[in-house]
Structure formats: C-alpha cells, structure tokens
C-alpha cells in the first residue's frame, strides 16, 4: 500500500506546530498503525530528519499509552480498537490519512503526537482508590459481591486511561474516564466507605484541571476502545449529587 500522511509536527510545548505531509510506500496491510509510523520514522532518521514522536508501550491494546486522532476520529474509525491494534488493512491503498494529537487544554502537547496526560493521574490521586489495611491478603470470597455488580464494576474497570474520550468530546470533558473510575469502585463493597467523598473529590479535580462539562453527546463512548458505557456518567452524577446534598 502507498499512503499520504498529513501529520501534526510540533517540536516542543512552545512551538506553534503545523501539519506536514509525508509519503509512505510499501506498507503491508498486516502492519499496525504504529508499525506503519515506525517505518516512516526509520526513513526519517536515515534521512537525518527528526522522527515523529508518539506514545506507545504494550502495543496490545491494554496499557492506554497510545492514541492519536486519525482522520478526525480518536483511535481511528475502527470501533473498540486502540491505535496500536488498528491495522492498515482498514485503509484504502492510495489514501490520505490525517493524524493529530489529542486536543484539550488539560492535555498539552509535549512533542508532535505526544500529549501530557498527568491530569488523569491527578484525578485518580484525588479519590480513585480504596483505603484498606495492608496486611495479609483477605480470602477472595470473604466479601460477597453480586454477579451483576461484579460484571458492571469489571466493565468500568477496563478503562485504560487512554484519553480518547476527552479527545473526542466536543466539550473536552473527562467525564467518561472519571465516571469509569468512580463506577468501578462505587459498585463494589470495598468502595462504599469513601463512595460519596470520592465522587466529589474526583469531579472537583476534573473541573480544576480545566476539562469541559458533559452534554451527554455520546462521542466519548463511541470512540472508547473499551466501550465504557454512558451510564457510568449517570452513576458518577448520582454519587456527586449525593455528596453535595448531604
């Protein structure tokens, strides 16, 4: 396959940045999107150019490091797929592909397609944990959990913190991420003692980071590689309102 890429290049946080066009030839349809960029980068290095910076780690769709907006869609148009698991067979030979970083004020661009997502870490630090006495591990079955709750909590827990929800949201809201983390813990018995204070702390941190508010558009869940559902946001809202009316 031969492709034309239009890629966002920005040498550092203070650079204005611009779209740069590249030709990539002999791309195998079996390559992942990141492997295709690796091929381009090898050539750029040989030619003495600066390679395109992008985040990645596991390349298995489980770590949440990778992510770029491909043709206007976070992680590309293939549903429920991270950028690292997106394969070139989903693109047409001769296509032009536009590649941009996540765009949100709380996710400043570090370089090219790499953004700083520490804002997510600070939301987790604000309340995305349970306080348990450290010691010998309790028996796995000592606290019963209803099957449905376990399933829903597990679904919410599959959020890998990639940030695609923020990138896709027209309001730049981090509601889906924050809601996934809140729902994951608030459905389980271990999460109950801190349930209400957690929602308040995490939502307030989300606001403090400068993320937008949720308008329930559903853009987030549509691009989420883990298919985190919108009802996690209702769960978050419910816990948050309880915290503020108590």
């Amino acid at each position: 396959m031969n492709l034309t890429l239009r890629v966002w290049r920005q040498s550092g946080p203070t650079d204005a940045g611009r779209m740069v066009t590249y030709r990539v030839e002999d791309v195998s349809p079996d390559m992942s999107f990141l492997e295709m960029l690796d091929v381009l980068n090898e050539r750029l290095i040989l030619e003495g150019d600066d390679p395109i910076a992008f985040d990645h780690d596991c390349r298995e769709g489980i770590c949440g490091m990778c992510g770029m907006v491909i043709n206007g869609v976070a992680h590309g148009e293939q549903r429920a797929t991270t950028t690292c698991q997106l394969h070139m067979r989903h693109f047409e030979d001769g296509a032009t592909i536009t590649i941009e970083p996540w765009r949100a004020a709380p996710f400043p661009v570090v370089k090219d397609l790499v953004v700083d997502r520490s804002a997510f870490d600070r939301i987790i630090q604000a309340g995305g944990f349970v306080s348990v006495p450290a010691g010998s591990a309790p028996d796995a079955h000592s606290i019963p959990v209803r099957k449905e709750d376990a399933d829903s909590a597990f679904d919410a827990a599959t959020c890998i913190g990639c940030g695609a929800c923020v990138a896709a949201c027209p309001n730049g809201s981090a509601s889906l991420f924050t809601a996934a983390k809140i729902t994951h813990l608030s459905l389980l018995p271990q999460g109950q003692p801190e349930r209400v204070s957690r929602a308040k702390a995490m939502v307030d941190q989300m606001d403090a980071e400068g993320f937008g508010g949720c308008t329930n558009t559903g853009e987030c869940t549509a691009v989420c590689p883990k298919g985190i559902p919108l009802d996690t946001i209702a769960q978050m809202n419910s816990d948050y309102l309880k915290a503020n009316t108590k």
Binding site: M19, G72, E77, G172, G212
Partner: peptide, 24 residues
C-alpha cells in the same frame, strides 16, 4: 458550560468526524 468547553479545547482539529451524529 459552553465557555468552559471552549476553553477546554483551545486548538481545534484540522479534521474532526463525529461518531455520535454531532446532533447535540
């Protein structure tokens, strides 16, 4: 809320394709 949303996305996308209809 609209102003907060505007501030949260100071740099717009060159290409943006709605995945949920862009209705809202």
């Amino acid at each position: 809320l609209a102003r907060r949303a505007g501030k949260a996305r100071p740099v717009k996308y060159v290409a943006k394709k709605s995945q949920a209809g862009g209705y809202t």
